[in-house]
Protein backbone atom coordinates (compact mmCIF):
# COMPACT_ATOMS: atom_id res chain seq x y z
CA UNK A 1 0.00 0.00 0.00
CA UNK A 2 2.77 2.40 1.03
CA UNK A 3 4.77 1.55 -2.08
CA UNK A 4 1.76 2.23 -4.25
CA UNK A 5 1.32 5.62 -2.61
CA UNK A 6 4.98 6.39 -3.14
CA UNK A 7 4.47 5.70 -6.81
CA UNK A 8 1.18 7.54 -7.26
CA UNK A 9 2.04 10.70 -5.38
CA UNK A 10 4.90 11.82 -7.65
CA UNK A 11 2.83 10.96 -10.74
CA UNK A 12 -0.06 12.98 -9.43
CA UNK A 13 2.27 15.86 -8.72
CA UNK A 14 3.65 15.76 -12.27
CA UNK A 15 0.11 15.71 -13.64
CA UNK A 16 -0.93 18.72 -11.58
CA UNK A 17 2.24 20.52 -12.66
CA UNK A 18 1.43 19.90 -16.32
CA UNK A 19 -2.11 21.17 -15.85
CA UNK A 20 -0.89 24.25 -14.04
CA UNK A 21 1.59 24.93 -16.80
CA UNK A 22 -1.07 24.60 -19.47
CA UNK A 23 -3.36 26.93 -17.61
CA UNK A 24 -0.62 29.51 -17.23
CA UNK A 25 0.35 29.38 -20.90
CA UNK A 26 -3.31 29.76 -21.87
CA UNK A 27 -3.48 32.87 -19.72
CA UNK A 28 -0.29 34.09 -21.31
CA UNK A 29 -1.81 33.74 -24.77
CA UNK A 30 -4.78 35.83 -23.64
CA UNK A 31 -2.39 38.43 -22.34
CA UNK A 32 -0.41 38.55 -25.58
CA UNK A 33 -3.56 38.89 -27.65
CA UNK A 34 -4.44 42.20 -26.10
CA UNK A 35 -0.98 43.74 -26.15
CA UNK A 36 0.57 43.92 -29.55
CA UNK A 37 3.60 41.74 -30.16
CA UNK A 38 4.68 43.84 -33.09
CA UNK A 39 7.27 45.78 -31.22
CA UNK A 40 10.98 46.06 -31.62
CA UNK A 41 13.20 48.07 -29.31
CA UNK A 42 15.20 50.87 -30.94
CA UNK A 43 18.51 49.93 -32.54
CA UNK A 44 20.54 52.13 -30.18
CA UNK A 45 19.11 50.36 -27.19
CA UNK A 46 19.94 46.99 -28.72
CA UNK A 47 23.47 48.14 -29.49
CA UNK A 48 24.07 49.01 -25.87
CA UNK A 49 22.41 45.98 -24.39
CA UNK A 50 24.18 43.56 -26.71
CA UNK A 51 27.33 44.05 -24.60
CA UNK A 52 29.64 43.54 -27.51
CA UNK A 53 27.63 40.76 -29.12
CA UNK A 54 26.02 42.88 -31.80
CA UNK A 55 26.50 40.20 -34.41
CA UNK A 56 24.61 37.66 -32.36
CA UNK A 57 21.77 40.09 -31.66
CA UNK A 58 21.57 40.83 -35.35
CA UNK A 59 21.33 37.11 -36.12
CA UNK A 60 18.58 36.79 -33.56
CA UNK A 61 16.56 39.68 -34.98
CA UNK A 62 16.84 38.30 -38.47
CA UNK A 63 15.78 34.84 -37.35
CA UNK A 64 12.80 36.40 -35.63
CA UNK A 65 11.61 37.92 -38.90
CA UNK A 66 12.51 34.85 -40.87
CA UNK A 67 10.63 32.46 -38.62
CA UNK A 68 7.71 34.89 -38.37
CA UNK A 69 7.49 34.92 -42.14
CA UNK A 70 7.75 31.14 -42.22
CA UNK A 71 4.92 30.95 -39.70
CA UNK A 72 2.60 33.01 -41.88
CA UNK A 73 2.81 30.46 -44.69
CA UNK A 74 0.13 28.38 -42.95
CA UNK A 75 -2.28 31.28 -42.62
CA UNK A 76 -5.57 31.31 -44.43
CA UNK A 77 -6.45 34.93 -43.81
CA UNK A 78 -6.53 37.48 -46.61
CA UNK A 79 -4.23 39.25 -46.97
CA UNK A 80 -1.89 36.61 -45.58
CA UNK A 81 0.33 39.22 -43.97
CA UNK A 82 -1.12 42.45 -42.67
CA UNK A 83 0.46 45.78 -43.50
CA UNK A 84 1.58 46.47 -39.96
CA UNK A 85 3.26 43.09 -39.95
CA UNK A 86 5.25 43.95 -43.04
CA UNK A 87 6.19 47.22 -41.40
CA UNK A 88 7.27 45.44 -38.28
CA UNK A 89 9.42 43.14 -40.40
CA UNK A 90 11.18 45.97 -42.16
CA UNK A 91 11.75 47.72 -38.82
CA UNK A 92 13.32 44.63 -37.35
CA UNK A 93 15.42 44.13 -40.45
CA UNK A 94 16.50 47.74 -40.17
CA UNK A 95 17.58 47.11 -36.59
CA UNK A 96 19.36 43.92 -37.55
CA UNK A 97 21.37 45.80 -40.14
CA UNK A 98 22.10 48.62 -37.70
CA UNK A 99 23.63 46.06 -35.38
CA UNK A 100 25.60 44.38 -38.12
CA UNK A 101 25.50 46.37 -41.36
CA UNK A 102 27.50 43.68 -43.15
CA UNK A 103 24.97 40.90 -42.56
CA UNK A 104 23.70 39.77 -45.98
CA UNK A 105 20.58 37.84 -44.99
CA UNK A 106 18.36 40.77 -43.91
CA UNK A 107 19.06 42.52 -47.23
CA UNK A 108 18.48 39.36 -49.12
CA UNK A 109 15.23 38.76 -47.29
CA UNK A 110 14.07 42.33 -47.86
CA UNK A 111 14.70 42.01 -51.55
CA UNK A 112 13.14 38.60 -51.88
CA UNK A 113 9.98 39.14 -49.87
CA UNK A 114 9.43 42.78 -49.02
CA UNK A 115 10.02 43.94 -52.58
CA UNK A 116 8.33 41.20 -54.50
CA UNK A 117 5.60 40.20 -52.08
CA UNK A 118 4.80 43.32 -50.11
CA UNK A 119 5.71 45.79 -52.80
CA UNK A 120 7.66 47.90 -50.31
CA UNK A 121 10.22 48.81 -52.92
CA UNK A 122 11.20 52.25 -51.67
CA UNK A 123 11.63 51.15 -48.05
CA UNK A 124 13.52 48.04 -49.09
CA UNK A 125 15.74 49.98 -51.42
CA UNK A 126 16.79 52.24 -48.55
CA UNK A 127 17.88 49.13 -46.71
CA UNK A 128 19.57 47.66 -49.77
CA UNK A 129 21.44 50.91 -50.45
CA UNK A 130 22.87 50.77 -46.96
CA UNK A 131 23.93 47.18 -47.56
CA UNK A 132 25.47 48.11 -50.87
CA UNK A 133 27.46 50.88 -49.21
CA UNK A 134 28.69 48.69 -46.38
CA UNK A 135 29.30 45.43 -48.25
CA UNK A 136 31.56 47.14 -50.72
CA UNK A 137 32.71 43.85 -52.20
CA UNK A 138 29.20 42.57 -52.81
CA UNK A 139 27.90 42.80 -56.40
CA UNK A 140 24.47 41.41 -55.59
CA UNK A 141 23.16 44.31 -53.49
CA UNK A 142 23.86 47.16 -55.94
CA UNK A 143 22.36 44.92 -58.58
CA UNK A 144 19.19 44.57 -56.51
CA UNK A 145 19.00 48.31 -55.90
CA UNK A 146 19.62 49.06 -59.58
CA UNK A 147 17.16 46.46 -60.73
CA UNK A 148 14.45 47.70 -58.38
CA UNK A 149 15.00 51.30 -59.49
CA UNK A 150 14.85 50.25 -63.09
CA UNK A 151 12.01 47.78 -62.95
CA UNK A 152 9.73 49.10 -60.20
CA UNK A 153 10.56 52.75 -59.69
CA UNK A 154 11.38 53.78 -63.24
CA UNK A 155 14.39 55.68 -61.99
CA UNK A 156 16.78 54.98 -64.85
CA UNK A 157 19.54 57.27 -63.64
CA UNK A 158 19.79 55.73 -60.19
CA UNK A 159 19.43 52.29 -61.74
CA UNK A 160 22.34 53.08 -64.02
CA UNK A 161 24.43 54.22 -61.08
CA UNK A 162 23.89 51.04 -59.08
CA UNK A 163 23.99 48.65 -62.00
CA UNK A 164 27.28 50.04 -63.23
CA UNK A 165 28.56 49.74 -59.66
CA UNK A 166 27.46 46.10 -59.61
CA UNK A 167 29.20 45.55 -62.91
CA UNK A 168 32.38 47.20 -61.61
CA UNK A 169 32.37 45.03 -58.48
CA UNK A 170 31.75 41.88 -60.45
CA UNK A 171 34.68 42.67 -62.71
CA UNK A 172 32.56 42.94 -65.83
CA UNK A 173 29.48 40.79 -65.41
CA UNK A 174 27.70 41.06 -68.76
CA UNK A 175 24.20 40.96 -67.39
CA UNK A 176 24.94 43.94 -65.16
CA UNK A 177 26.69 45.77 -67.98
CA UNK A 178 23.90 45.41 -70.46
CA UNK A 179 21.32 46.28 -67.83
CA UNK A 180 23.27 49.37 -66.83
CA UNK A 181 23.51 50.56 -70.42
CA UNK A 182 19.84 49.85 -70.95
CA UNK A 183 18.90 51.74 -67.81
CA UNK A 184 20.91 54.76 -68.88
CA UNK A 185 19.32 54.61 -72.30
CA UNK A 186 15.85 54.37 -70.80
CA UNK A 187 16.63 57.34 -68.64
CA UNK A 188 17.06 59.20 -71.88
CA UNK A 189 20.74 59.47 -71.18
CA UNK A 190 22.24 57.83 -74.24
CA UNK A 191 25.43 59.81 -73.67
CA UNK A 192 25.87 58.16 -70.28
CA UNK A 193 25.35 54.79 -71.81
CA UNK A 194 27.92 55.46 -74.55
CA UNK A 195 30.63 56.75 -72.24
CA UNK A 196 29.91 53.93 -69.84
CA UNK A 197 30.25 51.29 -72.52
CA UNK A 198 33.42 52.87 -73.87
CA UNK A 199 34.82 52.77 -70.38
CA UNK A 200 33.88 49.09 -70.06
CA UNK A 201 35.70 48.25 -73.27
CA UNK A 202 38.80 50.15 -72.17
CA UNK A 203 38.65 48.34 -68.85
CA UNK A 204 38.24 44.96 -70.52
CA UNK A 205 41.19 45.63 -72.80
CA UNK A 206 43.27 46.82 -69.88
CA UNK A 207 42.61 43.61 -68.01
CA UNK A 208 43.06 41.49 -71.12
CA UNK A 209 39.48 40.22 -71.15
CA UNK A 210 38.63 39.27 -74.73
CA UNK A 211 35.33 37.57 -74.10
CA UNK A 212 32.38 39.89 -74.05
CA UNK A 213 34.18 42.84 -75.64
CA UNK A 214 32.50 42.09 -78.96
CA UNK A 215 29.07 42.22 -77.32
CA UNK A 216 29.78 45.52 -75.65
CA UNK A 217 31.18 46.92 -78.90
CA UNK A 218 28.02 45.92 -80.70
CA UNK A 219 25.85 47.62 -78.11
CA UNK A 220 28.11 50.66 -78.25
CA UNK A 221 27.75 50.83 -81.99
CA UNK A 222 23.99 50.71 -81.71
CA UNK A 223 23.98 53.40 -79.03
CA UNK A 224 26.26 55.63 -81.06
CA UNK A 225 23.95 55.33 -84.03
CA UNK A 226 20.99 56.31 -81.88
CA UNK A 227 22.96 59.19 -80.42
CA UNK A 228 23.68 60.39 -83.95
CA UNK A 229 19.98 60.40 -84.74
CA UNK A 230 19.20 62.12 -81.44
CA UNK A 231 21.70 64.89 -82.20
CA UNK A 232 20.25 65.32 -85.67
CA UNK A 233 16.75 65.56 -84.18
CA UNK A 234 18.03 68.15 -81.74
CA UNK A 235 19.45 70.36 -84.50
CA UNK A 236 16.23 69.89 -86.48
CA UNK A 237 14.28 71.21 -83.53
CA UNK A 238 16.55 74.23 -83.29
CA UNK A 239 16.17 75.02 -86.98
CA UNK A 240 12.46 74.32 -87.44
CA UNK A 241 11.24 74.96 -83.92
CA UNK A 242 9.45 71.60 -83.69
CA UNK A 243 10.24 67.94 -83.39
CA UNK A 244 10.67 65.88 -86.56
CA UNK A 245 7.82 63.44 -87.16
CA UNK A 246 10.17 60.58 -88.01
CA UNK A 247 13.73 59.76 -89.12
CA UNK A 248 12.77 59.99 -92.78
CA UNK A 249 12.09 63.71 -92.24
CA UNK A 250 15.64 64.15 -90.90
CA UNK A 251 17.07 62.49 -94.03
CA UNK A 252 14.84 64.56 -96.24
CA UNK A 253 15.96 67.88 -94.71
CA UNK A 254 19.60 66.66 -94.86
CA UNK A 255 19.93 66.88 -91.07
CA UNK A 256 21.12 63.27 -91.11
CA UNK A 257 23.59 62.14 -93.82
CA UNK A 258 22.43 58.59 -94.05
CA UNK A 259 20.26 56.16 -92.11
CA UNK A 260 22.57 54.38 -89.64
CA UNK A 261 22.22 50.65 -89.46
CA UNK A 262 21.41 48.74 -86.30
CA UNK A 263 24.12 46.14 -85.60
CA UNK A 264 21.42 43.97 -84.03
CA UNK A 265 19.57 43.88 -87.35
CA UNK A 266 16.60 46.02 -86.37
CA UNK A 267 15.45 49.41 -87.64
CA UNK A 268 15.63 52.72 -85.86
CA UNK A 269 12.46 54.69 -85.36
CA UNK A 270 11.15 57.56 -83.32
CA UNK A 271 8.39 56.90 -80.81
CA UNK A 272 5.53 59.27 -80.09
CA UNK A 273 7.61 61.11 -77.48
CA UNK A 274 10.36 61.71 -79.98
CA UNK A 275 12.70 59.12 -78.42
CA UNK A 276 14.92 57.17 -80.77
CA UNK A 277 14.37 53.44 -80.49
CA UNK A 278 15.17 50.35 -82.45
CA UNK A 279 12.91 47.50 -83.43
CA UNK A 280 15.60 45.05 -82.30
CA UNK A 281 15.49 46.55 -78.79
CA UNK A 282 19.24 45.81 -78.74
CA UNK A 283 18.75 42.07 -78.86
CA UNK A 284 19.90 40.07 -81.86
CA UNK A 285 17.07 39.73 -84.35
CA UNK A 286 16.86 36.59 -86.40
CA UNK A 287 16.40 37.49 -90.00
Amino acid sequence: MKRLLQLICPLLLVLILLLAHNLATQMQKQLRKTSDILYTPPADFLKISSLGNKGLFSDYLFLKVYTFYGGTLNRNSKPRIRNEEWEWMINVLHNATELDPFFLDPYYFANAFLVWEAGMVKESNLLLEKGSRKREWDQLLPFYVGFNCYYFLNDGLKAFRFLSEASRRSGGNQLYESLAARAAYNADKTEFAISYLEDRIRDAELHGRKAGVADIAKRLESMKAMREIELAAESYRKVFGRRPADIAELLEKKMLGSMPSDPYGGFFYMDSNGRVRTTSDMRSVKK
Binding site: N53, G55, D59, D100, F103, L104, D105, F109
Partner: peptide, 24 residues
Protein backbone atom coordinates in the same frame (compact mmCIF):
# COMPACT_ATOMS: atom_id res chain seq x y z
CA UNK B 1 21.81 24.05 -36.13
CA UNK B 2 21.24 27.81 -36.12
CA UNK B 3 23.76 28.77 -38.79
CA UNK B 4 22.29 26.06 -40.98
CA UNK B 5 18.95 27.88 -40.85
CA UNK B 6 20.34 30.92 -42.66
CA UNK B 7 19.62 31.68 -46.29
CA UNK B 8 22.91 33.27 -47.28
CA UNK B 9 25.37 34.34 -44.64
CA UNK B 10 26.00 30.94 -43.05
CA UNK B 11 29.64 31.75 -42.39
CA UNK B 12 28.84 34.98 -40.62
CA UNK B 13 26.31 33.41 -38.30
CA UNK B 14 28.57 30.45 -37.59
CA UNK B 15 31.41 32.77 -36.61
CA UNK B 16 29.09 35.03 -34.58
CA UNK B 17 27.79 32.09 -32.64
CA UNK B 18 31.27 30.69 -32.09
CA UNK B 19 32.70 33.98 -30.85
CA UNK B 20 29.73 34.97 -28.72
CA UNK B 21 29.52 31.60 -27.06
CA UNK B 22 33.23 31.73 -26.37
CA UNK B 23 32.72 35.14 -24.81
CA UNK B 24 29.74 33.95 -22.79
Amino acid sequence: MISGMMMQDVAKVAVDMALSSLNF
